[in-house]
Write a protein that binds this DNA or RNA. Structure first.
Lengths: 154, 154
DNA sequence: TATTGTTATACTCTATAACTATA
DNA sequence: TATAGTTATAGAGTATAACAATA
């Protein structure tokens, strides 16, 4: 018997609360699974973005990742300490730091992907591929456009 | 142009990360909407549970809500200070506190419901009723049974 | 000795504002 | 004067362990 099975069902009749709770669980599982890589979820997402979109300034990275500038500084400090990214001054505008993925950063991404795959397999074990695709499509259509100042968890 | 529209799409191709992010947004919206009632989301859920299931001991409430015992103490302290709940000693076992919803606590629930309704309307404005029902059903089938020690956000 | 609730504490995440260096 | 990045700090949320009262 698990905690979830005994938990109040009525409150979770509210889809907004159900979404919040299961989102938090997904967040926690991702964090736990990535612990083996030594990365936080946001550090993993940062590496993913760099691998997919190439070098980028911190300001642009702030908008791409949806994190606060001061939070990004902490993320990059840790990644740079572990030689997974490099900050290079932009010669065209010496205020700017261009963030570049290192070879070590690229290679750790395979472990990040494997960890995230495992989390998703476990979360959606009771859903078939069509259902997961439907869930993904419906989640992506949730309206997140307004209230940009709301906090981000990932 | 919003932050979300410029955000990295590739990372959000991962349904686990999308679920975590949109769950966090739902959580934040609920928190902001409930600010007018002076309640946190967890305080609101606690009142909902008491209204639906009647008086209950704190230990049972801990399991029903999925919060830490020490967190529940803080939740109930604030609710009791505002006369929304009462803690009564169980005469049959004087270690136990039975938590009871007050009349004032019951009446504030109508405002909690209205606030949560508004959040859900806004989040799912691009989905029709069938799609919301499908999303709700799929979310409820996510496997949350294992790793009970994972953190809870709501 | 075990259980119920409480307190104290620490740790993470997030948000805000002030600061620097460059433009 | 404005912008890119940084630092310092405060707040919320969560988890852990030690504690008092009662069984």
């Amino acid at each position: 018997m698990t905690v979830e099975e005994t938990r109040s069902r009525r409150a979770m009749d509210r889809i907004g609360l159900l979404l919040a709770r299961h989102g938090g669980i997904s967040n926690a599982r991702m964090r736990d699974a990535l612990e083996a890589t030594g990365l936080s979820t946001r550090q993993g997402i940062t590496l993913m973005h760099l691998a997919e979109n190439g070098p980028i300034g911190q300001q642009a990275l702030v908008e791409a990742l949806g994190v606060d500038p001061s939070a990004l500084v902490a993320i990059l400090n840790d990644l740079e300490r572990d030689n997974l990214v490099e900050r290079r001054r932009d010669p065209a505008d010496r205020r700017r730091h261009i963030v570049v993925l290192t070879d070590a950063g690229g290679s750790v991404l395979t472990r990040v992907d494997a960890a995230m795959d495992a989390v998703e397999r476990e979360l959606f074990v009771h859903l078939d591929a069509d259902e997961v695709a439907t869930l993904h499509r419906l989640l992506s259509r949730i309206n997140t456009a307004v209230n940009d100042d709301a906090c981000r968890e990932v």
